[in-house]
């Protein structure tokens, strides 16, 4: 028995020290030294308090802001979640129809597909350029900014395909909204 279990116990203990402690702690040390902001969650701090993460969607409902994609988990980052509704689900059909009429009532035009579908994580930080530009007129009116200025800010925050081949063009909602706030000569509190 001992001859059988000794290698198992010793190697498991050794591997736990090596792969379960030394490896993650070494990666932590290197990442914290090289890229501390990214390693701690790409947080955005304003006036000393954390307002969110560059990578994590947060809800925006006001007319002055770009709205993120629908979240099946109500923008919870603890825990994250998706709708997991199948393509033949009647519930999905109802939800998509409701989102479409809401988006089109708020912005006019035709709702792009990413605006009517819940994301995989419920925390998708980005929307399609069509979705962003579709909301531009509403944002410009609410802020009293020229439409061209809003469009320029959206375009400046648009990322294209990697190598021209991979991924979809996208606009980060939180970063764009912060840029919109910075470009609007009104204190956010007064606007609310």
């Amino acid at each position: 028995m001992l001859t059988l279990f000794r290698p198992a116990l010793v190697l498991l203990a050794g591997m736990t020290l090596l792969t379960g402690l030394a490896y993650p702690l070494a990666i932590t040390a290197i990442a914290q030294a090289l890229v501390p902001a990214a390693a701690n969650g790409s947080l955005i701090v304003q006036d000393g308090s954390v307002i969110g993460s560059r990578l994590i969607a947060q809800d925006f409902a006001g007319a002055r802001y770009l709205h993120p994609r629908p979240s099946a988990a109500a923008f919870s980052a603890m825990p994250s979640g998706a709708s997991n509704l199948g393509p033949s689900s009647a519930t999905l059909r109802r939800e998509v129809a409701a989102r479409r009429s809401a988006w089109e009532a708020a912005n006019g035009g035709t709702a792009p597909v990413d605006a009517v579908t819940a994301s995989g994580s419920g925390l998708d930080p980005q929307i399609s350029p069509a979705n962003a530009h579709g909301q531009a007129a509403r944002i410009a009116a609410a802020r009293g900014l020229p439409l061209a200025e809003v469009s320029r800010i959206i375009a400046a925050h648009t990322e294209s395909r990697w190598l021209g081949l991979y991924g979809e063009p996208r606009v980060n909602v939180l970063l764009t909204n912060l840029a919109l706030d910075a470009a609007t000569p009104v204190a956010p509190a007064a606007a609310n």
Partner: peptide
């Protein structure tokens, strides 16, 4: 057709499409 024109984006992330 349920989702309208475009790809099936339910449960997908915009950056991956």
């Amino acid at each position: 057709a349920v989702l309208g024109l475009g790809t099936n984006m339910e449960g997908k992330e915009q950056r991956f499409g």
